[in-house]
Structures are given as C-alpha cells and as structure tokens.
Design a protein around this nucleic acid. Structure first.
Lengths: 226, 226
DNA sequence: AGTTTAATATCGAAC
DNA sequence: GTTCGATGTTAAACT
C-alpha cells in the first residue's frame, strides 16, 4: 500500500517505535522510541517526537522516498543529491499507517511582517521623524540593499534599517555596513544618518548604536490600535 | 475523546478540511483546505499542508489546547501568554482523529556541528596554521564571547570565528565586532588578527574580509576521510 | 544553482 | 524571565 501511495499525490503518516539515522550536511543517530513519520507529496519527510516544534529529523522538499521490509520491519529511506543527504527510519513496531488524498489551494495571508513596517513608513514618513522623506526602497549598495533610503528635513541622507521585532547586535552590524558603504560610494562630505527602526533594542545593541553614531526609532509593524 | 486525551501525555493528530486563524507576534488567515493537525503532549501545535517542511501555522511548546464543537464542526484552539498568541483551527470535515501514548527516552546524537569544528581545532591547532596556540574558548568580550582565542607563532593575539558551513557577510560582521572589542579592551599597540574558519566564503564576504583586514581559513567540522 | 536576507524563525545556554 | 548565537536552520526573492 505504501509503495503505491508514495506517488506524489498522497500525504502519508506512519506511527510506531523506530530508530532514525541521518547522514548529509551533518550526521545523526537516534535510538528507539515512539515517533510520527510524515511523508508529504512534495518529497518532504518529517520525524516528530513528543516534544518540540521542530522535527527531530527530516528531509527537505524534493526528496525521493522508498519503503522496504527487512526482517518483517518497515524501513523508510529518503534521499536527495546536492547536497547528498539520506534519512533512514527503521520501525520495530507500527501502530498506524495512513494515506490521505490532500487538496489544498489556499495561500497563507500573513501580516505584521517587515514589509508591513515598510509600508507603514511609506504611508506616513513622519512616524520616523517629522520631515523625513523616503526616496527609495531596496536601494543597492556594495554592502547589499538598504531597506529605506531618504532625506531628513535638512536634506541630509538617511538610511533606515527595518526590523519587525526587538533587535540585537546583528542588526546594528547590518546598518553599519550600509552606512559605511554609502559614505564610500557617495564620497560626499555631508553627514549620512543611519537609523534603526524596530519595536525596541537590547542593551548591547543600544551601546553599539552609540559607538557607531547611529540612531534608533521605536516603531512596530502593526498600528497601535490593532 | 479528544478532551480526555489532551492530558499532557498523548500525541494527537487530526486530519481534515479546515480553516486556520493565527494572531500573536504576527497575524495570519488561511482559507479552507486539507491539513494535518498535530498536538503534542508538550503543548506544541502544528498545522501541516501538503507542501514544505515548515508547518503553515503552529504554536510553540507550552501552549494549552482546547477543543469544542460549533455547528457540528470540530474547533481546536491553542493559546499562550508572553507573548499573547492564539491559534484557531476550524474543521469542516474530519477524516481521522488519532491519539497515541508516546514513549521516547532517546536523545539525538548529532555530529558535524560547530562544536565538532572547535574540537577538531583544539585537537590539532596546526589545522588553522602552523604554530597556532589556542588559549581559551568562549572568551568574553564586550561584544559577546569569542569562539577561540589564541596566539600565533609570533605571539600575536588571534581571534577565530568558527562556522560549520559556507558563510556570507553576516559572519564577517560578527568577527569585526569581536576584533574591535578586543582592540579596545586590550588597549595594546600589538596587532590583533581576526580569522574566519569555515568550509568556504561567498564573494561578498571575501570582499568584506579584505576591507576589514581579516583572514580566512578553510576547514570543515568533519575530517576529510569521513 | 548560488547569494542574500527575513522569519510568528526554533532552540538551548548563560545570565 | 531576557539575551545571545548556532541551526542539517527554512523559505523566498533575486541573479
């Protein structure tokens, strides 16, 4: 039944006591225990234990799944190339095998992302500071694309780095790279301001901002009356 | 049956046609489709479609799950506080409901991690460069802990930043922060070398290394005869 | 196929 | 509890 249903159209689940071996980018071994194996029609494989949101082992979409019987026990093997990766699940006991004809056309509608934060700023630039004028989004520099590029009321160049949630030192590093790249590329004597826009910052990130002469503006992706 | 089995000891799966609403750190809405709902004993909730490794919607461990019947349809609600987040799954049809008494004591044994790379270097420092002497791991600086701290054959301070796989500009930014922090804190005139140790680097990362006067050494977490 | 960055990232450890 | 960095991160956009 399983072999027939690994046809790229069926969602398969197997529940039972098994061991799991993985070899690829890393390598792992998992002793016997009760787990849920999910084989998706797109070639994804997931091994879930009783704990955690992440599967304990997995294969990404695009893999090929095979089943076999060894000493009366079910074996499932999933593999891919580039990079070469292999997952082997050996069941001692199987409590349940299911195959579902799945139909799902709907796309997820998600809000509260960095893109929403950008749109909020473009709709009302005064949220950043009075007189701020956005000139471009995703403006290219040698250090990568700047989220929002614009001018303040005095005509000084302003670079915004947007984050949808509280930020640590990594985001400051990103902003530093953009500001330094623009200073080199615009080769102007005029000041370039770098502003991190996020709901809040950690202490270490705030220190780094001070050391680098950068600024912070508190803003969330969602309107306060949400 | 479901209410009785949401007892913190049972793994529950529900398969059927449903809609999903999420509100919390972000917010999302998903129209009707066939999906697999997994409720773990640790309070995790997963909604899986036919595609992708990641669930289309989820709740992290520690949430409380509730079930109810509305107009003859099964509803599942999962919520948590700090941050306040809620997931609602409304089933039109239910093809299967399962409850499994799960027993799993085994821990995953994973190799090929950054920790393995560190151990490789401590076992044979010459892999980094002839004469390199590691003095400390996780050495604290104001910018965070340095992976490996040591001296080269001439006695110059060397900072290693380790990555288990090919690295981009972000890792260079991290190394820059550590080297700058040490230059301030050691307030010495002597040179401090920063070395990125990883299997490979992207072009942009290599440029950044050059601009910052940092170095790169190619090394993987696993021995070449693996 | 490779690069870059966002993410409801997740997860674990240190504080 | 918050902060910080690794992750077999995943996933999407772009080259």
């Amino acid at each position: 039944m399983l072999e027939r249903r690994l046809d790229g159209e069926t969602l398969v689940t197997v529940y039972g006591r098994c061991t799991v071996e993985y070899d690829g980018r890393a390598a792992s071994s998992l002793g016997p225990g009760d787990r849920l194996l999910v084989l998706k029609p797109d070639g994804t494989a997931l091994v879930h234990t009783t704990e955690n949101q992440k599967p304990v082992n997995w294969q990404p979409p695009g893999c090929t799944h095979e089943v076999s019987l060894v000493d009366g026990g079910l074996r499932v093997r999933s593999e891919r190339s580039t990079p070469a990766e292999e997952l082997r699940v050996a069941f001692e006991t199987v409590e349940q095998v299911s195959a579902f004809d799945a139909r799902d056309e709907e796309d997820l509608a998600l809000t509260g992302t960095e893109e929403d934060l950008r749109q909020r700023i473009l709709d009302d630039p005064d949220l950043v500071e009075s007189g701020f004028r956005p000139l471009a989004t995703e403006r290219e520099t040698s250090a990568g694309a700047v989220d929002v590029y614009g001018e303040d009321r005095e005509g000084r160049t302003v670079v915004l780095e947007l984050k949808r949630r509280r930020v640590g030192p990594d985001a400051v590093g990103q902003l530093v790279r953009y500001v330094e790249a623009l200073r080199r590329e615009l080769h102007t004597d005029a000041e370039i301001r770098g502003v991190l826009v996020a709901p809040s910052v950690t202490d270490r990130a705030r220190e780094l901002l001070g050391e680098e002469g950068l600024e912070f503006v508190s803003l969330t992706p969602r309107a306060s009356d949400d």
